[in-house]
Design a protein around this nucleic acid. Sequence first.
RNA 1: CGGGGUGUAGCGCAGCCCGGUUAGCGCAUCUGGUUUGGGACCAGAGGGUCGCAGGUUCGAAUCCUGCCACCCCGACCA
Length: 491
Amino acid sequence: MADAITPRSTDYAKWYVDIVRNAKLADYSPVRGCMVIRPNGYALWENIQSELDQRFKQTGHQNAYFPLFIPQSFLAKEAEHVEGFAKECAVVTHARLEQNPDGSGLRPAPDSKLEEPLIVRPTSETIIWDAYRSWIQSWRDLPLKLNQWANIVRWEMRTRLFLRTMEFLWQEGHTAHATEREAVEETRLILDLYADFVESYMAVPVIKGVKTAAERFAGAVDTYCIEALMQDGKALQAGTSHFLGQNFAKAFDCKFQNTDNELEYVWATSWGVSTRLIGALIMAHSDDQGLVLPPRLAPTQIVIVPISRNEDEKAAVIEAASKLASDLRAAGVRVHLDDREGYRPGWKFNEHEVQGVPIRLAIGPRDVANGTIEVAFRHSGAKESRPLATFAANAAALLEQVQSELFSKANAFRKANTTPVDSYDDFKDVIETKGGFVLAHWDGSGETEARIKEETKATIRCIPLADDNESGVDMLTGKPSKRRVVFARAY
RNA sequence: CGGGGUGUAGCGCAGCCCGGUUAGCGCAUCUGGUUUGGGACCAGAGGGUCGCAGGUUCGAAUCCUGCCACCCCGACCA
């Protein structure tokens, strides 16, 4: 509980795990590559969920739920999709266990072997498009815009808490449209929604862009993404929105009759963000003292720690603290009065710091006498005394200020770690020594991209959508390039 | 799957080379007391198939053989 956190400068990967475990966000499970999401971590996911869910509904989406198990044959229907996912599927082959003949434990009963194996969904396009085929006949059935909150399984070789686990939680939106244009608009709408959410709620700046063919979702025509930069200079894909064209409609024979009385294949999108966002959050803001949470997402925004030496003091302090807590609650602040017995104030300070509570208030006999409280800011470490009477009224604004300071800090970090380069030598040097986003010209060929990846381990994170075109020549081949693209080493 | 490493109390480790009372230490936990403005202190207590299976030996955490698990580094990925 009170273990030291490895400093980032010593070992970034270890620091990350220490944060996750000391802040009690998650724990390892008995199953390799899986994790237990603890209450502190799950509360973050619930806040992410409820905000996104609202936004999905505001933009005309409905929630539904599709099965965990998918017939193996479904996956095979879309050629690129199967190629992308087949190698990381968990497969259910038997329906029953029985005692081993020699009495040594259990085995799958041979006579319970399934006619057709089931795969545990690595994503749900196939089973959803199978349903869409039967639900969509006419242009009047479109658009169909569903989302599901679910768990999925991808049999990963190497895993990291939140960033890559074999099972993870996410939402996946799947929409069907009458026209290509409408589907592309949907893809972009969700991309904007994700970017705004991550920037305004999580205070993590992102770059919106399109993936290259090599990095595209298996089965998509275009994959749009938001890319965030972590404190160690590595990029993290924080969300994706795919324009699927008519690939899945064709694979699942999903057609509709248009207003001209003709049969057409449906146009599709799919999009998702996962519990990986929590990993992004940690690596964007946290420090060597522990987790740092942005107020909008923090399960507890303000914690109050009472301090007293005897029963008389305690009564007065608790009374003042309780009143403050209820005033804050009335002002819409998620506040927690930490009145636990048996823990000293210093211990509580540390615990709330490790767990990332944005603002800590300490109130003791001196404060009660002076009508003040001590305000400590998690993100800056600043500590100051303020009048007690007016604090609650200003609290919401104070939290918003913290939120925006966090974003500014992350934004400044990204700016400082985004480097334009024009020669391949400079490129290799920056990737190797400085890291971060590297903006360079690329000739658009998969060969060049693959060679750069091979030689530097840096990939094209995206071709940015931002309107800052500047033509040039590929740093490697000298061929013409219409704009700079974003390179980085990535998680 | 290739290379490296580690398995001893909930966690982190010592002991192993050189076999020998009851397997130890720190943190955490429990009880009692004194404490409380930045991780309190004192006293006491509980907690172990020494990863598993064989072998050598009067005797194995320690030596030998085999197996298993996990971690780190690489190839794949939200």
